[in-house]
Nucleic acid binder design. Structure first.
Length: 488
RNA sequence: GGCCCCAUGGUCAAGAGGUUAAGACACGGCCCUUUCAAGGCCGUAACGGGGGUUCGAGUCCCCCUGGGGUCACCA
């Protein structure tokens, strides 16, 4: 019988979420959900020096926002709790002691000072430092005496010195490492807490994790974990190591270098759905050519087989494209809801129907934050350069622009019920009557009522949004200014 | 530096010995068109190098080069 798939996202609470971490969470979630399994959240906070206030909330918030609902976790509990390592602290040491008993681990009383000195010495000789097993050969009596007199100690894993250790990775295949490269790593720190290296093995086993999914930076330390599983006689999980996400220049993404975190991207106007969609495809590809995915679709389409091995770079242009795609496919109502805060910030003119503005904006918005810069002309008509009336392709000049505006004015004035249809019909019949190109009428009007060379929406849409009075007023301003310029 | 991993256009990537080497982003052009978008069509652009294996190699092997990761009482 196949065991139910269980994956775990095990972040350490650092206070922010960078995109690599988020993608790891996403893949863990997808691996579980694509196989009807469970997705578990576990907080790895064994490093007390790194404690950050509120950091766990960032994790909850992000997962929730992205729709990555965990089935078990600190906040919702579950049959394998507690799900915070610091709350499990008393549970690890007995396992380490068991290892000491059966010869796979040993007490080490070496001081930090001694270790630092050794390290410095090795460095001076340009050698890689590795613990010298100074405490491995302590007699039983010595050990007991030191323990009794309270000398601080750690427990180290005893590595084999010869041979190699191999493991199977679901994406990288067989990885083999020489055992003499493995240091006798610390399992239990002198503060009594386990290291990540130890705790993750114990917890993954105790929590019945079937697929260990994490970044490829853990690839070389995985043999150490396997040796631990073997020492305990435990079943080894399926390993799924993920390629890194790097910056365009190939270097690693890091908060310290100011690279955008998930939170930053949201502030920059990117949608959660677009971010999730984009990072899902950074390192994984579906069977089809489909690019736009909802989370639900990803849950169906995801498979480990198509996870790639090489690192991929985070391309903002493509993220922007995904964002634009998601914006275009959402309902006008939904877009309006998202655009509203930005519109309220940018549009002070209370006569403007903001939902109409949203409508002309939806296909012209790639990132929400660019909205304010597109709608300023709705507030007031600013002074503009008359040369924008002259447009080669529209075949407009100052003279014929003036004519068009003068012709349009009474026609527009005559409209009783002011809406896109009536404006459109009136203007079109005028154009027909005058026998001119659409552009020769519509370009000058748009120019006159916006004062901008480029605007979202055309003359008719904008006239409707502005309302009859304001439209006529602005056209009159245009006529006045053009008359002055032409007669001069 | 030792060890591990990776290598298809600028970027994301398909490709599991025989293909005109997909598709997407970006870029360029054209069409549509009342500006700008959106949309449609077309185009520029890739198997890092060298050896093998094979009738045949982007696909398999080796070397080189390049990139990344890792070598903590961090995770």
């Amino acid at each position: 019988m196949q065991r139910q798939v269980r994956t775990r996202y095990a972040p350490s609470p650092t206070g922010y979420m960078h995109v690599g971490n988020l993608r790891t969470a996403l893949y863990e979630y997808l691996i579980a959900k694509s196989q009807g399994g469970k997705f578990i959240l576990r907080i790895e906070d064994t490093d007390q020096e790194r404690y950050v206030e509120g950091a766990v909330d960032v994790i909850y918030k992000t997962l929730k926002l992205c729709g990555l609902r965990h089935d078990e976790g600190p906040d919702i509990g579950g049959p394998y709790g507690p799900y915070v390592q610091s709350e499990r602290k008393n549970l690890y040491k007995p396992y380490a002691e068991e290892l000491v008993k059966n010869g796979h681990a040993y007490y080490c009383f070496c001081s930090k000072e001694r270790l630092d000195a050794l390290r410095a010495e090795a460095e001076a000789k340009n050698q890689t430092f590795m613990y010298d097993r100074h405490c491995l050969n302590l007699s039983q009596a010595e050990i007991e005496e030191k323990l009794k007199s309270g000398v601080p100690y750690v427990i180290r894993q005893k590595m084999p010195r010869e041979g190699t250790t191999s493991f199977e990775d679901a994406v990288y295949g067989t990885i083999t490492i020489e055992n003499n490269m493995l240091e006798d790593q610390i399992l239990i720190k002198s503060d009594g807490l386990p290291t990540y290296n130890f705790a993750n093995v114990i917890d993954d086993h105790l929590m019945n994790i079937t697929h260990v999914v994490r970044g490829s930076e853990y690839l070389t330390s995985t043999p150490k974990y396997n040796l631990l599983y073997k020492a305990f006689g435990w079943e080894i999980p399926v390993y799924v190591h993920l390629p890194l996400i790097v910056k365009p220049d190939g270097s690693k993404i890091s908060k310290r270098k100011g690279d955008a975190t998930f939170e930053d991207l949201l502030k920059m106007g990117y949608l959660v759905e677009a971010i999730v969609n984009f990072i899902a495809l950074l390192g994984w590809s579906p069977d089809s050519n489909q690019e736009i995915f909802t989370l639900a679709e990803l849950e169906k389409a995801f498979n480990i087989k198509h996870i790639s091995k090489s690192p991929s770079s985070f391309d903002m242009d493509k993220l922007t494209w995904f964002n634009a795609q998601h914006i275009r496919t959402m309902s006008p109502e939904k877009f309006h809801e998202l655009a509203l805060p930005y519109l309220k910030e940018a549009i002070t003119n209370e006569d403007i129907d903001l939902s109409k503005v949203s409508r002309i904006l939806q296909n012209r918005t790639e990132v929400l934050t660019e909205i304010p810069s597109k709608v300023g002309f709705l507030n007031e008509l600013c002074d503009y350069d008359l040369n924008i009336y002259v447009h080669k392709k529209m075949k407009t000049t100052l003279e014929n622009s003036l004519t068009s505006l003068k012709e349009a004015l009474p026609v527009l004035e005559a409209i009783d019920e002011w809406n896109e249809t009536t404006i459109h019909d009136s203007l079109m019949s005028l154009i027909e009557r005058l026998g001119i190109k659409n552009g020769q009428m519509l370009w000058p009007i748009r120019t006159a009522i916006t004062g901008w060379e480029v605007t979202p929406g055309g003359a008719i849409e904008i006239a409707d949004i502005l309302g009859k009075a304001e439209t006529l007023r602005r056209i009159k301003v245009g006529i006045e200014r053009l008359e002055k310029a032409v007669s001069a």
